[in-house]
Amino acid sequence: MGWISALEWRFPGFSLAPTRVFWWFLVWVAVLGVSALNTGNNALYMLLATSLGAFVASGVLSRHTLGHMRGETVWPSEVWACAATRVQVVVHNTSRWLPAWGVVCRLQGLPGGVVLPPVPPGGKVGVSLLTRCPERGRLPRPELLLEVRLPLGFFVKSLRLPQSGELLVYPRLVAAALPRFSGLPQGKEERGDRRLQRGGEVELLREFRPGDDLRDVHWKQTARQGRVIVMERREQERSLRFLVLDPHVRDPEDPDTRRRFEDLVAEVASVARKLVHAGQAVGLVVGERVLPPAWGPEHLRRILTLLALVQPTHGAAGTVFAIRGQQAVYRLARDS
């Protein structure tokens, strides 16, 4: 509607949508007006004037409330696609006299919302908003949407507050089984690996780091020093394990292909997370990008970042270049 565009020009980020109450109010005013005109009853004129006055008052006060609201969002450090994410929202009320009541907070384009507690004049409140990002990737931070319906609910007036910065959404987590890495038979490999990984002389004692094997904890030193101390053994020949994701597909634009590719990425991400949390070193190969095997939260973050940004590309199934070590290859099956 042209006048709404004009409103947006004057009040950037502002939008207006009539509610069912508004349409019923129009009917009410019309019927009341005709009755008052027909009868000349001044009491009906009073009721009509009160109704229209209340309509104007509601518009003025809701606009005042919305015009004095500011807000920002604080996202958690890890955001997963299709998973419930709790976003902290801080809303400021810069009005000097009118508290903000009944304000609804939402994120543009994302589900979920929260009704704010009363925001005193000149004050602020912080609330937790549960939402869900539908897809992975690097996205601009969604705008914060503040909606006001009160005092009388004729319109839903909303204000979009842009949020600076970007958001990295990791692939969604699925229940994925651990892969069978190519190379030595599973059982022998595991036995041997375990011995190799945990064997060897103790090279040094150091502080515990996330990802360390709990069996390497030196309990005596831990009790003595009051912090968790682990034994770092001389590293044996470790087998290098890689998760390989082939991004080449026949038709990247096909929706079904994209859906299947997303499932694939989700599986790889879930497997990687499981392995790293289990203390295993794992690397990632995506196309020509290689992340060497490592462990720890920082490495996991690199893996997930790479997986969050990978896109399917057109081409025949890529040849996985020869890498030293074992690998689990994830590739979309060709259409028959």
């Binding site: 009160t50 229209l52 006055g53 006060l61 009541w101 005092p151 009388l152």
Partner: peptide
């Protein structure tokens, strides 16, 4: 909010 609505409604009405 309630008082302001009533006052404004009266002033306009």
């Amino acid at each position: 909010m309630v008082i302001a609505t009533a006052l404004l409604a009266f002033l306009v009405g």
